[in-house]
């Protein structure tokens, strides 16, 4: 190896090292702004109604991919993608329980079973699937349990599908809430028929 070739290699090595260092130092493109979503946006309604809670809803089980603040989406090849810049403002399981409990209590307002929730009707909600897809579909699948007339445990399956009107996670959240309202209606009917 001649001296000139050695010098060339040294120069290239220094250039590469400088480029790496420069790339580390230079600021990259600005990161997208973080978006937070709240599933239950009816706080004003919550304050005006449902003075006495008669139905208590608890999330008995929920998929692991929903135990995170990040929103998720299923792609065509059945992959779940966690969003980096779209997150829930509240814990999703708490929001689901809150929405369903509120709606069910609203719909069964005419029937008071208890003064408070120490002895109220208990709904155990098992969420199996709850996500939007990259094609704009939203699914809510699972089952709920409650005690029937003879104190027998009733188990009701549910499966809802919706379509997003527009693209984006904001629209997906809106559709997810709509599916939860459908579920609340089914629970209310089940409770009404049971008593």
């Amino acid at each position: 190896m001649t001296i000139s070739r050695k010098r060339n290699i040294t120069a290239i090595a220094i250039y590469i090292a400088s480029a790496i260092a420069a790339s580390g130092c230079t600021s990259s493109a600005p990161a997208p702004q973080m978006q937070h979503y709240i599933l239950d946006s009816a706080a004003d309604r919550l304050a005006m109604t449902a003075k006495v809670q008669k139905v208590d809803v608890r999330i008995a089980s929920i998929p692991d991919y929903l135990n995170t603040n990040n929103l998720v989406m299923q792609t065509e090849d059945h992959q779940m993608v966690l969003a980096r810049y779209h997150a829930w403002a509240n814990r999703l399981s708490d929001s689901i329980a809150s929405i369903v409990a509120f709606e069910v209590n609203e719909q069964v307002a005419g029937k008071e079973w208890a003064d408070d929730c120490v002895a109220c009707q208990d709904i155990a909600l098992h969420i199996e699937h709850f996500y939007p897809t990259s094609q704009g579909d939203v699914f809510l699948v699972g089952h709920f349990e409650y005690s029937g007339l003879n104190k027998e445990k009733q188990r009701i399956r549910f499966s809802y599908a919706g379509e997003m009107e527009a693209g984006g996670y904001a629209s997906a959240v809106k559709e997810m809430r709509a599916l939860l309202l459908q579920l609340s209606g089914q629970i209310s009917e089940s409770l009404a028929s049971a008593h």
Binding site: P30, A83, R84, Y85, S134, Q135, G136, M164, Y169
Partner: peptide, 17 residues
């Protein structure tokens, strides 16, 4: 140590009614 090039999230598409 090294920051990753930020990329916007892929989002679900809407379905025209």
């Amino acid at each position: 140590i090294f920051s990753e090039q930020p990329q916007a999230d892929e989002q679900p598409e809407g379905k025209a009614r």
